[in-house]
């Protein structure tokens, strides 16, 4: 019996090493790539070529548009002076680990560092676990020059509107002025004007956003089209980013005085 157990154990070890060729489950998560946002932030922050103007390329809502997504990567690699790239969320379509891997492999071809915001599709099934391992925290921030980038999880519907998403306590804390930054840019997947944003939190969210008079703009995706617009009583610009299937990418140039948005064909 002991011999049998040893044989079985060795057999299991051999099978375990065949992991790459044989699939065990669509929900198996065994990523080798971890905490990409944190790793890329340290690359961005330590990069010495950051000039007075920041040039950021945006895409998002890539879902299953893999070929279009590859075009985006190829085009951005040819653009001059891009400092970094932001994917505005819906990195996956079904939230499947394999889709996280496919997306990762496409983004790995970028010559500049990239960051990924969390989208509602990325939170389906065990997507939260996948995002958390591959990219890290759902809410995070970093400062370049005098600008603070605040990535906020605004996918309230995925949490059944439990009143905790977006995390307003964390959000306000990030906006409280200090000597490290002057202006803040909010990056999120869902706009506060969307039905997927928790309507109970909308007023308080607006108050916090305007409270310190330091938010430059709110950049989001989710509806796949491009638009710079205003929401009633919000005194800031909202920028909606194209879904990658439109074969357009948005390049944002940010200076200490403001920003300029331009769409390019991919």
């Amino acid at each position: 019996m002991r011999k049998f157990i040893y044989t079985l154990f060795i057999f299991i070890l051999i099978l375990q090493s065949c992991d790459d060729i044989f699939d065990y489950s669509p929900y198996q998560v065994d990523f080798e790539e971890r905490n990409m946002n944190e790793k890329n932030i340290s690359k961005i922050v330590s990069s010495t070529d950051l000039g007075d103007t920041l040039k950021i390329a945006f895409t998002g809502d890539s879902h299953r548009f893999y070929d279009e997504w590859v075009s985006f990567v190829n085009t951005v690699n040819k653009e001059d002076d891009i400092d970094f790239i932001i994917h505005i969320g819906d990195f996956t379509d079904y939230g499947l680990p394999i889709q996280y891997e496919w997306g990762y492999n496409i983004m790995a071809e970028l010559e500049k560092p990239y960051l990924v915001a969390i989208g509602n599709h990325d939170l389906v099934a065990n997507g939260p676990e996948c995002y958390n391992l591959m990219f890290g925290a759902f809410n995070f921030s970093f400062i370049i020059g005098e600008i603070k980038f605040i990535f906020l999880n605004t996918n309230s519907r995925e949490y059944a509107f439990n009143g905790k998403v977006p995390d307003l306590g964390w959000y306000e804390n990030e906006l409280i002025p200090d000597s490290t930054f002057n202006k803040a840019i909010i990056v999120a997947h869902v706009s506060p004007s969307d039905a997927d944003f928790d309507s109970k939190l909308k007023d308080e969210f607006r108050e916090i956003t305007l409270k310190y008079n330091n938010v430059l703009t709110y950049i989001h995706g989710h509806t796949h089209h491009f638009e710079i617009y205003n929401i009633d009583n919000f005194d800031i610009d909202f920028i909606n980013i194209y879904g990658v299937e439109h074969m357009k990418a948005t390049i944002l140039k940010i200076t200490s005085n403001g920003y300029e948005a331009e769409n390019i064909d991919i």
Binding site: F22, R64, V70, I106
Partner: peptide, 18 residues
């Protein structure tokens, strides 16, 4: 459906061997 209409996704990527 993920591989449908996408040359980027290899056929071997979507196979499950057992």
């Amino acid at each position: 459906t993920s591989a449908w209409d996408n040359s980027e996704i290899q056929f071997t990527d979507i196979l499950e061997l057992g």
